[in-house]
Amino acid sequence: MALDIASWVLLSMGGLFVFIGGVGVLRMPDFYTRIHASSLTDTMGAILIILGIMLQAGASLAAIKLAMILLFLLITSPTATNALASAALLAGVRPCGTDPVMSADKGIDLDTNADAGSLGEGKDT
């Protein structure tokens, strides 16, 4: 019973983090802050949710498999975020506020650079 409650607490916390990550992706001003928000989903959200499911699974083969999944997620998702960020940097997306031409008052609109528009605006089109 206590395990059940603990697992539900973990699952709800994980859901909360995923939700915050989702809000962040929608509300953040530029590409880099957005992937920062989405990395919250990958790390905190995934960890809490998988721990919650592990408590539900109990001591079994399923729990070990879940632990492996968690391990691989913890290795791959930061790497994916890093690769995404460096790809954006390579394509010429400037972080919001670093360049006087594309300062914060322009907000999300980074369309001055064609590549920046394509990558930064990906989720909206």
Binding site: F72, T76, T79, A83, A91
Partner: peptide
Amino acid sequence: EVESTAEIKFGEGLRHFLIPQVVGRLL
């Protein structure tokens, strides 16, 4: 322009990006 960057990527892979490469080799 797009083409040339794409060609660089396909030709050399991500050899200049350390983190994806190390993790990729691991995986």
